[in-house]
């Protein structure tokens, strides 16, 4: 076996993950808290006001990172879904179980901050345009995965059903991304892309980048922590877990 294959199969071992992941948890947590604090203070207190929207645009510093993360987490679940169906890897199934409620909460942040931003900007808390509607669908896809896992009593069947929904649901992600280009939406198109210069000065987008990294790091820490607990719960009868309980 090549080095990658060995690594891949080891990664699938819940115990291996548990033994290695503690420093990751600490690293992501510290990075997440520091970055989010810096980005938020910067965005709220030091970035200049927008020439059209004034200070209400500052909601961008949580809205855009959370919305982006909400999509990325779903794609990650889709990839994990393939791993579940093809390699039957337990850790990938645990990842979907742990990520679904976190993804739902992050999508909730994106929707709520969007609604709050919409009120002074569009004059309405909610509009049924392509962007808002497709993100609402994303929210219910997360809910659907959680519901499937709860509704199916056999764990392996529940895991496979959730994996299928995770894979199929990723179709919605490009729809969310391109909704602002394909349809006439009230939602503005992206201000920052890989292909063009940002439509805002560095004093505005640098704190956005900082909060972006902060959201990703903090949620990575939450997922690692959740996954560690999930490993413990599922392997509760294994000798190594009982030894670990004895030590801690």
């Amino acid at each position: 076996m090549g080095r990658f294959t060995t690594w891949f199969y080891r990664m699938g071992s819940p115990r291996w993950f548990f033994d290695l992941s503690r420093p990751w948890l600490v690293g992501f947590l510290v990075a997440g808290i520091v970055l989010l604090t810096v980005g938020t203070v910067w965005g709220l207190g030091f970035a200049p006001p927008d020439y059209q929207q004034g200070d209400s645009y500052r909601i961008i510093y949580i809205h855009v990172p959370s919305a982006h993360l909400a999509e990325a987490l779903y794609v990650a679940m889709g990839v994990a879904g393939i791993v579940v169906l093809v390699w039957r890897m337990k850790l990938a199934d645990m990842f979907i179980a742990v990520t679904a409620p976190v993804g739902m909460a992050i999508t909730g942040i994106a929707l709520l901050t969007g609604a709050i931003w919409g009120r002074p900007t569009w004059g309405a808390w909610w509009v049924w345009d392509a962007r808002t509607t497709s993100v609402l669908v994303l929210f219910f896809l997360y809910v659907g995965i959680m519901a499937l896992r709860q509704a199916i009593p056999r764990a392996d069947q529940a895991g496979r059903a959730a994996a299928v929904l995770a894979i199929v649901g990723t179709v919605n992600v490009p729809i969310i991304k391109y909704s602002v280009d394909w349809w006439l939406t009230l939602h503005q198109p992206a201000s920052i892309t890989f292909t063009a210069a940002p439509a805002m000065p560095p004093s505005m987008w640098v704190p956005l980048l900082v909060n972006f990294l902060g959201f990703y790091s903090l949620v990575a820490a939450f997922l690692v922590a959740g996954l560690r607990n999930e490993v413990l719960r599922r392997e509760a009868d294994a000798q190594w877990v009982r030894d670990w309980v004895g030590r801690s």
Binding site: T40, L44, D55, S56, R58, I59, I62, H63, S66, I109, L112, T113, I116, W117, R119, P120
Partner: peptide, 9 residues
């Protein structure tokens, strides 16, 4: 709006 959004988040 700003503080509500940050508070909830």
């Amino acid at each position: 709006y700003v503080w509500l959004a940050y508070g909830i988040s």
